[in-house]
Design a protein around this nucleic acid. Structure first.
Lengths: 127, 127
DNA sequence: CGATATGATACGTTAAAGCACATCACACAA
DNA sequence: TTGTGTGATGTGCTTTAACGTATCATATCG
């Protein structure tokens, strides 16, 4: 009989990871949570999303709904944006510079970009 | 009896819209599609997402999954980013400047930001 | 050593996304 | 007028996110 065959299939399905881009998002969430010193259970309290589900999300094994992503992002002080490919390098440079521990304090910062590349002036490019 | 009562409820449910943030995303998708001169049916061809569903997505009546959002975004040449609240004004200024029809051509552009506000130098601020 | 906190995993159930397909109303042009 | 393209809406069905709850292995600390 083949009962346990289908059981095994279900089991394997649970461990399949999502595509690269979705995993990137998942990684960003995990990183943001940890940088805030929150455990999955603590974040679960704040968002209402159970810890078991947060674990799946961060592991990239589930294809979450937009409302879930927004709920989690909001408590992590992140916002979802659809960035035109054209502006992507500049946006990413900008995000990187903000995520760095505050060298440059609250001094004004600058990004210059043109076509496909972006440069930070006042540059601390040490990653 | 109350049979048609539950039927009515189902009908109403279909028209409930999502929260502001989700609608913002939906609007961005619609705007991006139209700016590319694509009909919903054409986009359906490119993405594999049926037109009926695209309509629901753009109307903001469904809570789409991340994979759907990524699929649509990719063919519209948009990328999903999680932006720290801190960097949001600058990022949005940047996106706005790119979405404008190319005055300034491919000349270098600049964004300066500090704390919560962002300023475009080389400014064409006409919206 | 036990106690506690953490992340990962599993299971049963429910609600809803997603699909294929079919209309429908409203344009606008031949 | 008729035809054609568009977006919106409905229906039945399958898949699966999301929840609640529980368990497990692994740390770290008393």
């Amino acid at each position: 009989m083949c009962f346990n065959v289908s059981y095994r299939l279900t089991d394997m399905k649970k461990q399949i990871k999502m595509s690269y881009l979705l995993e990137k998002i998942a990684g960003r969430l995990k990183q943001a949570r940890e940088s805030k010193g929150l455990s999955q259970r603590a974040l679960a309290q704040l968002t209402g999303v159970p810890q078991s589900h947060l674990s799946k999300i961060e592991s990239g094994v589930v294809d979450i709904r937009l409302s879930s992503l927004v709920a989690i992002s909001r408590t992590l002080e992140l916002e979802l944006e659809l960035v035109p490919k054209q502006a992507l390098p500049a946006v990413q440079a900008l995000i990187r510079s903000v995520e760095k521990p505050d060298k440059n304090g609250d001094q004004p910062r600058y990004v210059m970009w043109s076509a496909k590349s972006a440069y930070q002036l006042e540059g601390d490019d040490d990653d």
